[in-house]
Design a protein around this nucleic acid. Structure first.
Lengths: 225, 225
DNA sequence: GGCGCTTCTCAGGTGCTTCTCAGCGAGGCG
DNA sequence: CGCCTCGCTGAGAAGCACCTGAGAAGCGCC
């Protein structure tokens, strides 16, 4: 059971770490939002404990971006009592549970166990653009109700484009996100894969979801082309 | 007033630190891009002074990632005179002002004060003049709600004109900013591109956003023509 | 090992973009 | 009014970005 704790108050974080370790959890602790987001995206945890008040990126923002990046690990938010934020907000932003500070450690453990038992939330997100849909959970893609089979790389590329639908993304951005941050091959590979995708999701349907923005990159039309 | 200075030339960095301290700023100095990015994200500064040439992560990249991470602290970029990069690039990447090395210390302080007074830019603004709008993020241009497609060079030119809307800018200014500081071709190329732009953003709409100021240069009407 | 699928590289072709050039028109000034 | 200068524009050349077919290399499965 891996837990990520994102909490900037060092003493509280340390207490939580010790307590959860004693309960048999494997615990990573980080102290700011950006690091938390990075860890949540890179590693796979069973649950994330996320403070709201954080330096840099606040907890809401971390949660929102995790979801936007397709990470559906259950999140338990820690809210301050003073009520600047309330639990409605937390749920709106994709948190799965919340706890008001100060909290009982036993309650925290019970809630975490419940979240883990429940598993990842019912991934609401089938990504869509017009009649083009992609379900990250089942790794399926449909165009106009008809299933399209993609290779892993093609799927990754389409996933990325859909998450940024409407925006122009550069080939460098794509390489860093879909390939690897320190991939050092030719950007031509992106062109090749855009070509593959077009042949599978555009050509057979007479559509043009993926536009080329010459000199800049590509854009997936928000309406599906 | 907290300032983060990201500058790898130790001597220059030290001078800036001393000078700014004497002016009453609280100054943090770091010497490479990664450290600068980390500090900018974790701490809250009133303004960041960012060199472009840095080991590791260059200044453009630092600025881009700051913005991507939701940090909108005003950034003043330091550019080298040789013009490998130009200020158009700096603005594209979310910088709020720039200074060419070598610079007068008094000018630096004045610019920093101006940036702090202005406060954090809410978000990168869509540039507008009347019903003409340009969004640097999505690289889209609209006239009266209708999208206009521009080539990269045309886009760069319009971007520059919009940033100086209401002012007369010389062809030399344009060449240095939109082309390259040491571009040595004919200024006629500017006339050609102004012509292209007029055909795309003025003629079809019966407008005259771009005026010629004979003997001086061009002016983009603040109201869009 | 052989086969098929996936990924990636390479090189040629194509069309857009950029830039140059030259001729024409308009503005400014004597 | 006439001349000179400045700016505008159409035509075309050169360069570059992108697309694509072919094929090699890698990987898993029988």
């Amino acid at each position: 059971m891996r837990v990520l704790v994102v909490e900037d108050e060092v003493r509280l974080a340390e207490n939580v770490r010790r307590g959860l370790s004693a309960e048999g959890f494997v615990v990573d602790v980080v102290h700011d939002g950006a690091e938390g987001l990075f860890n949540a995206e890179v590693n796979s945890y069973d649950v994330v404990v996320l403070d709201i008040m954080l330096p840099g990126l606040n907890g809401y923002e971390v949660c929102r971006r995790m979801r936007a990046a397709g990470v559906w690990t259950p999140v338990l938010m820690l809210t301050a009592k003073d009520g600047e934020y309330d639990q409605a907000d937390a749920f709106d932003l994709g948190a799965d549970d919340y706890l008001t500070k100060p909290f009982s450690f036993l309650v925290l453990v019970a809630r975490l166990r419940a979240l883990i038992r429940r598993g990842a939330p019912a991934r609401p997100t089938v990504l869509a653009a017009g009649d083009l849909t992609l379900d990250p959970a089942t790794r399926t893609v449909h165009r106009g109700g008809q299933e399209v089979t993609l290779t892993p790389r093609e799927f990754g590329l389409l996933h990325f484009l859909l998450r940024h639908r409407g925006d122009v993304v550069s080939k460098t951005d794509i390489l860093e996100s879909v390939w690897d941050a320190n991939y050092d091959g030719d950007e031509n590979v992106v062109e090749v894969y855009v070509g593959y995708l077009r042949r599978k999701i555009d050509q057979p349907f007479g559509r043009h979801a993926i536009e080329t923005v010459r000199g800049i990159g590509y854009r997936l039309a928000a309406g599906g082309g």
